Amino acid sequence: MAQRGRDRDEEGRARNARPRDGLGRPLPYGSEGVPRAPEGVVREPAETVAEAQRLLDAGRPFHAHEVFEDAWKSGPEAERTLWKGLAQLAVGLTHAARGNARGGARLLGRGAGAVEEWSGQRPYGIDVAGLVGWARELARRVADGGAPVDPVGCAPRLRGPMSG
């Protein structure tokens, strides 16, 4: 069987074009996957939060992570820890949903630490204290149980209980 060459974008950079499932796992070429979040999109912070919440609510934390990653890479230097921490929370939930308890707990803890630097603030309406509490509780639960979690049932509310 011939090996397929590396997928590349228009600029020649390596990009995996395989379809992915809702948790970002690569599927075989030709499979039906979920739509991927486009990479490198520059959004206003409120749009980033809204799009990430939509993806989290749909059980697609890996894709929410990509939205946060765009903000972390394109936003102001002073906000990079916030967006990077949010990306770590989303990918921590991804690992927890995939059944990777160790990786999920570690990333949830790391993300909580980064986001916690914003304690006492509500940047872009983000419920920092609520997210930190959610992440630490989920990290404990995942580390104790090890079974995959439901990404929809465990999705955080970025702006608190009334978020959407």
Rank of each mutant, 00 (worst) to 15 (best):
A101K: 09
A112R: 06
V128K: 08
G113R: 13
G145A: 09
A139W: 04
L86N: 00
R106G: 00
Q88D: 13
V132I: 12
I126M: 13
V142D: 03
E137Y: 04
P123N: 08
R122F: 02
S119V: 12
R110F: 10
G99T: 04
A87G: 12
A96T: 01
Y124C: 04
H95Y: 13
R102I: 06
V128S: 04
W118R: 15
A90K: 05
R136K: 14
D144N: 11
L108F: 10
D127S: 02
R140E: 15
V115M: 09
G130H: 07
S119H: 14
L108E: 09
Y124H: 14
Q121T: 14
H95S: 06
R110C: 03
A112N: 08
G146R: 08
A101N: 09
V128L: 08
I126N: 01
Q121L: 14
G146D: 09
A97Y: 04
L107I: 00
L108K: 06
A129E: 15
V132K: 11
L86V: 00
W134K: 11
V91E: 13
A97D: 05
Q88A: 03
G125V: 01
Q121P: 06
Y124M: 03
L108I: 03
G133Y: 10
A96G: 03
R122H: 07
L93P: 09
R110M: 12
D144G: 10
A114K: 15
L108T: 09
A97F: 06
S119E: 15
E116R: 15
V115N: 07
A129R: 14
V132T: 12
G103V: 01
P123V: 04
I126K: 01
R106F: 08
A87L: 10
E137K: 14
N100K: 01
L108C: 05
R106K: 11
R110T: 14
E116P: 12
L138I: 12
Q121V: 04
G125C: 01
G145P: 04
L131R: 02
R122N: 05
V128A: 06
E116K: 15
A87M: 02
R106D: 09
G104E: 03
R110E: 14
R136S: 11
A112P: 09
R136Y: 10
R106S: 07
L107H: 00
G104Y: 02
L108Y: 09
R106H: 06
W134Q: 09
R106A: 13
G104I: 01
I126W: 02
S119Y: 13
D127M: 02
S119G: 14
W118C: 09
W118D: 12
A114Q: 15
W134C: 07
W134N: 08
G130W: 08
L138Y: 13
G103I: 01
V128F: 10
G104A: 03
V91A: 02
Q121N: 12
W118H: 15
R102E: 13
E117Y: 12
A96P: 03
A114P: 02
E117M: 14
Q88Y: 11
G113A: 13
A90F: 06
A139P: 11
E117A: 15
A135H: 08
E137D: 15
G92E: 04
R122I: 00
G104L: 01
A114R: 14
G145N: 11
A129T: 13
G99R: 04
A135K: 08
P123K: 07
L86C: 02
A112F: 08
H95N: 06
A101T: 06
G113C: 10
